[in-house]
Design a protein around this nucleic acid. Structure first.
Lengths: 354, 354
DNA sequence: CTGAAAGCGCTTACAG
DNA sequence: CTGAAAGCGCTTACAG
């Protein structure tokens, strides 16, 4: 209706005091007599003037950039970030990169316009991200989440993607699988996918099994239909190690469409520990990251950094192997000696820090 | 490190121009010579001055309040809101109410501190929400999403919760089910759950079937374990109509723990159309809402309202019945005459607008 | 296209 | 505790 901006001056007029007094009530910087304060508050309310926080001084926001909110893992992290920030009186402003470096540039630019206290982000690749480099150069309080290590001065919160992936692939090897197909998001769009692929190779190499060429899929959106027919025809895998739970669930659906059953015909593993994956049947065998807690920890770190109370840290959080029902014994001759040439000593959590 | 605020004045000094020119580059309001612009941008970068958007004028944010980001439906809506807002140069700031009216008050207060152009929110109950009432009283551009209709002046984007629920329950009735248990979030925390329960009763009443007492569960978090043993013992339902997909998936898991199979022993339906629900097996029979599109539409409406280009509208969007694999024939004597006393005429989309 | 200057909304010593 | 006034960061006609 009325585009006219209500100013502190209007409030002062209605409240019958000076603009200075209104400002003082707004900032709370200096005590104001109760009666006066009441009049000012009443006037502000009647005029719909947002008292209590001016745009410059006490407005505090935290910027968050994620690839996509359609992945429940990032939504869970955001939930943790928002909760932690809110408890400290800080608002959360978000942007999505849609897994594109240009999306990162644009998103960070938009977030910077809010003059955030700090930033939390998941980028395609922290080693090459221009947006992240810019943030580091500007010495802004910032941390990555899920990513591997980035530029100096930027904190990070992540699991050991490589080690955790090795852990879950080991489960496949223990079940006798030798033809294991890695299905992941494009490595160029996700250093997590790339790191997990390395972990997959680690595990196979440890027992002298040859990896199959990985199947990289585009990140389209949350639950995408993926087509495994070509890869299955070519490589005849007995198991699929997906780089995340969403892909694992998509893979199971794809196999189902081909008339293949999990884990009877093909075994499948995931990575992430989306809450939903614990509910569906067969229960997904996967590696769980504490996403909500990771969000809270990252928010805490960045806000502490902004307050000058802490420096950037590289926090490694524990991943947990969730043994579900999507691994079965490998069919065919290999299954005769399931744990033939497996190392038997270091089975429990070989690659994890504390 | 250095708390000294960098101002437009510093940039002007380094760039060798007036503050006016820097301001013009920043706002883009008026053309500036290329060479000058380059110098200003270089100076701003070197000083870490956030060009491109001053805090007062062009900073534009849209506030979003949802019950919880852990529910993929709200995350999807948020994704749509963010995308639409970003395209219009507006940032999105979020808050979660955790399904509590006090959480709504607190969240809206926090959002208001950002002086948003407008607000989009899903509240427990728009008819009684204090936060929503306050927003309406202040004539702020705002719209609810998912909720039923709220105060005058506030727009809304939603499906016909009641009619859509009747539609999916009709599927259960057509399969011969007569003992159908409604499982929903607490009605006091969700007008959607309450409206869907009414739709459930509508469907049953239309064919003269007595409803069972509903099972209301607390909203804890995304994928909660629910316990159906007591309700199953007491009412011996042959089918469960859940008020949302998350609960439907939880119900299936709960039944599985009890050794019951879906749809052989018990049929289950959902509501929402989470993308993931289309991937899991058995595929959930549910009613899909276009969440991401609903978010985009709501953002568009609120930003138009803020620009004075549109008034608040109550937009009804279409829901779609997704026939999955979670409905089987009712066991026992009823299944002999599945569609005994069912109305046969109005089967297709009885309760939908356009 | 650019600068000098007026102006805006707000904050904050200063004086009472 | 309060007001008048100086000041700050920024924007924007105005003049060239």
């Amino acid at each position: 209706m009325n585009g006219a901006v209500v100013t502190i001056r209007d409030v002062a007029r209605v409240a019958g005091c000076s603009i200075a007094t209104v400002s003082r009530v707004a900032t709370g910087s200096v005590p104001v007599a109760d009666a006066t304060r009441q009049r000012v508050i009443a006037a502000a309310l009647s005029l719909n003037f947002p008292l209590g926080r001016g745009p410059s001084a006490s407005r505090a926001v935290l910027g968050v950039l994620v690839p996509s909110l359609a992945n429940p893992v990032f939504a869970a992290a955001l939930a943790g970030i928002e909760r932690c920030a809110r408890l400290r009186g800080v608002s959360t402003v978000i942007a999505q990169s849609h897994y594109l470096p240009e999306g990162e540039d644009e998103g960070v630019r938009a977030l910077m316009a809010e003059r955030p206290r700090g930033l939390i982000l998941t980028v395609c690749d922290p080693a090459t991200s221009r947006a992240l480099g810019e943030i580091a150069a500007q010495r802004l309080p910032a941390a990555t989440i899920y990513n591997g290590s980035g530029p100096a001065g930027v904190g990070s919160v992540a699991v050991d993607n490589r080690g955790a992936m090795a852990l879950v692939v080991l489960e496949l090897l223990k079940a006798g699988h030798r033809r294991i197909l890695f299905v992941g998001g494009r490595f160029a769009s996700s250093d997590r996918s790339a790191a997990r692929h390395v972990g997959y190779r680690d595990a196979l190499q440890a027992v002298g099994v040859r990896p199959l060429p990985p199947l990289e899929v585009d990140f389209i959106d949350a639950a995408q239909d993926i087509d495994l027919t070509a890869a299955l025809d070519r490589h005849r895998p007995t198991a699929i190690a997906a780089s995340n739970d969403l892909l694992a669930v998509s893979a199971i659906a794809s196999l189902d469409r081909m008339g293949l059953s999990v884990p009877r015909d093909v075994s499948v593993t995931g990575f992430d520990g989306m809450e939903l994956a614990t509910l569906i049947r067969p229960r997904l065998t996967t590696v769980a990251q504490p996403s909500t807690a990771m969000g809270m920890v990252a928010a805490s770190m960045v806000l502490d950094m902004a307050a000058g109370a802490r420096g950037p840290e590289a926090l490694r959080v524990d991943a947990t192997l969730l043994r579900g029902e999507t691994i079965g014994p490998a069919p065919g001759p290999q299954s005769l000696s399931p744990s033939a040439n497996l190392p038997t000593t270091e089975t429990p959590t070989p690659c994890f820090s504390d």
